[in-house]
Amino acid sequence: MHHIESLRISFPAGATGGSVAVYPPGSNFGPRTMRDFEFVWIIQGDVTWQCDGVDHAAPAGSILLARPGMRDGFRWDPLHETRHGFYHFTIDLAGAELPAMEEWPLVRRLPENDIIRQLFCHVDWLMRSRPDHWLVLAEHAMRHALLAFITGAMAVTGDVGPPLHPLIEQVVAHVQRRWAKGRLEQISLDELAEAAGVSRAHLARIFRAHLGATPVESMRILRLDRAAALLVRTNLAINVIAEQTGFENAFHFSRVFRQQYGHSPRAMRLRIAAGENMPTIPLVRVRHLSARMWQKPPG
C-alpha cells in the first residue's frame, strides 16, 4: 500500500468528538440512508446491523464502518442494555492507493488491546481540549483508525483514558450500578456523598473544581446526554425517553431539555433528521465524565 499520506479525513463542522449512546433492551434504530462515513463501536450488547438488506452480527467489541449511500438500521440487544460510540467523517481518496472501497470490511472484532479504541479516545480528547493544531491531529488520528480498520493492523497493549478524581470515580461506579437496569433515576446529593464517603459540601467542592458543575447538575447533564442520544438514535416516543431518563413526565422532560439544548425534544429530533449535528454537552469536563460513564461497563 503506497501514498497513504494523500488520504484526507474531515469532520463535520462543529464536531466535538464522538458520542456514546445507550439503549434499553429491544430498541431499534433506522432505517436511514448514510450521508457520510460513520464508525460505530459496539461497547456493550449483541447487535444486529442491517446493511443494504443484509444482517451482520455485531457483538460487543465490534467496529462497523458505514459508508455514504448505504441504507442501514440497527436492532439493539433484545435482552440487555446496548452501548455504542459513533464518529462521523468524510474521506478524500484522491491519490491514495488503497483497496477498492468494495473490498473494505464492514465489521471487525477488536482484539482485547487495540489501537482503534485508543485513537477514538485521543480524538475525543483533542476535540474537547483543543490544543494547538488539534484539528490536524484529530484528522490524522482518525486516518490511522481507518487504515487500521481496513488493514486489520489493530493490536496494541495498554489502557486508555486518564482517570478522574478518585472521589468522582467512586460516584461513577455507584451511579453505574444504580443505572445498570436501564432507567436513569434521579440520585440525591446525600446518596452520592454517602457513596463517596465524604460530606455533601466536600463532594460538591470536588465536582466544581474538576468538572465545573455540582454532583446533582452533573447527573442531570448525563441524563440529558442519554436522552439526546435516544432522541436521534432510536425511534422511541418522547414520553418513553422521558421515563427511561428519569424525568417525571414528558412535559418536565421537554422543559429541562429545552433549557439545556435550546430546542424541544421534538424539534431536536427533526433538526437532526434534517442533517444538523448531534447536540453536545455544554460543559467540556462533564463531556469527559459522560465518556467515562458510558464507555466503561459497570463493575
Rank of each mutant, 00 (worst) to 15 (best):
I116C: 01
M101L: 07
R183Q: 01
A227W: 02
M127D: 13
H122W: 02
S218C: 11
T234G: 02
A180Y: 00
R177Q: 14
S6T: 10
I281F: 02
A173V: 12
H88P: 09
G73A: 15
R226T: 11
V175S: 13
T16I: 12
R285P: 12
Q186V: 14
E38I: 13
E248Y: 09
K181I: 03
F29V: 10
H122M: 05
R117L: 02
P279K: 10
I4A: 04
E97L: 08
R71F: 07
E276G: 15
R266M: 10
A155W: 00
A21I: 14
A96T: 11
F247I: 06
S218F: 00
V216M: 00
T157N: 09
L137P: 04
E97D: 05
H263L: 07
R266I: 12
A66T: 12
A94Y: 06
A196H: 03
F253P: 03
L146D: 04
V172L: 14
P163T: 09
A58E: 06
M154I: 06
A94E: 11
L110F: 00
R258M: 10
G275W: 02
R67F: 07
A180Q: 13
I206M: 08
V216C: 01
M268F: 10
A209D: 13
V198L: 03
Q259E: 15
H80R: 13
G182E: 03
L98P: 09
R233D: 04
L270H: 10
L184K: 02
E243R: 10
P298G: 09
N277H: 12
R32D: 14
A229H: 01
M1D: 01
P163Q: 11
H88C: 15
A60D: 07
F247S: 07
D159C: 03
E81H: 07
G152M: 05
N249M: 01
Q244F: 05
H3L: 01
